[in-house]
C-alpha cells in the first residue's frame, strides 16, 4: 500500500515539476515567430505538411521559404506581413488556414454554429424530457415492507 501511494505521489510530483520547469525556458533560437510563420504556410512539395514540419531532405519548397522567413524576421518584418507576402506570391494554396474573410469565413464559423445549434438542441431535449418528468409526479413511498427491505439488502449484498 505504501509503495502504491509512493508511486502515485511520485507521478503527480514528477508531472508538476515537469510542468513548472516549462515557465523557466527562455532560450528560443528559432523563436515563436519563426515557428508561427512556418506553421501558417503549407509546403508546396506535395508532402501535405507545413513549412515548419516538412521533413523532406533539402526540400525545394520548404528550404528557400524557411530561409526567406528567417531573413525577413531578422529585418524586423512581422509574421502577418511575411504570410501576406507569400499569399500574394502563391495564392490561397500556400496558407495553412483559410482567410477569415468572405466565403472562407464559413470555414471558421460553421463548426461553432453547429456547436451552438447542438447546444440549443441538447438543452431543448433535456428540457422537454425533464418537464415531462415533473408533470408525472412519482408515487410517494412512505414505508417499505420487511420483505422489500430484505430484498434490497440481498441485492446490495449480491452487488458487492
Amino acid at each position: 500500500m505504501k509503495s502504491l501511494r509512493f508511486l502515485g505521489g511520485g507521478i503527480v510530483v514528477g508531472l508538476l515539476l515537469s510542468i513548472a520547469t516549462l515557465s523557466l525556458s527562455q532560450d528560443r533560437p528559432h523563436g515563436p515567430e519563426f515557428r508561427a510563420a512556418g506553421e501558417a504556410l503549407m509546403c508546396q512539395c506535395g508532402c501535405g505538411a507545413t513549412i515548419a514540419t516538412c521533413a523532406m531532405e533539402r526540400c525545394h519548397s520548404a528550404e528557400p521559404i524557411r530561409e526567406e522567413i528567417w531573413e525577413r524576421l531578422q529585418n524586423g518584418d512581422s509574421v502577418a506581413s511575411i504570410v501576406e507576402t507569400f499569399k500574394e506570391r502563391y495564392g490561397l494554396i500556400i496558407l495553412s488556414a483559410p482567410p477569415a474573410s468572405g466565403f472562407h469565413l464559413t470555414a471558421w464559423i460553421v463548426p461553432f454554429v453547429v456547436l451552438l445549434i447542438g447546444a440549443f438542441a441538447t438543452r431543448h431535449v433535456l428540457s422537454s424530457w425533464t418537464r415531462h418528468g415533473e408533470a408525472m409526479q412519482p408515487a410517494v413511498v412512505t414505508s417499505i415492507s420487511e420483505a422489500q427491505r430484505a430484498r434490497i439488502e440481498k441485492e446490495l449484498q449480491d452487488l458487492s
Binding site: 490561397l92 495553412s96 483559410p98 482567410p99
Partner: peptide, 26 residues
C-alpha cells in the same frame, strides 16, 4: 469540425474554383 476541415479544400475548390488549404493552424 475534423470532418469539415478535412473536406474544406475539396468544398472550397468546388464552390470557389480555388483550393483553400486547411492545415494545423486551422
Amino acid at each position: 469540425a475534423v470532418l469539415w476541415g478535412t473536406m474544406y479544400p475539396v468544398l472550397s475548390e468546388a464552390l470557389q474554383g480555388e483550393k483553400a488549404m486547411v492545415g494545423p493552424a486551422w
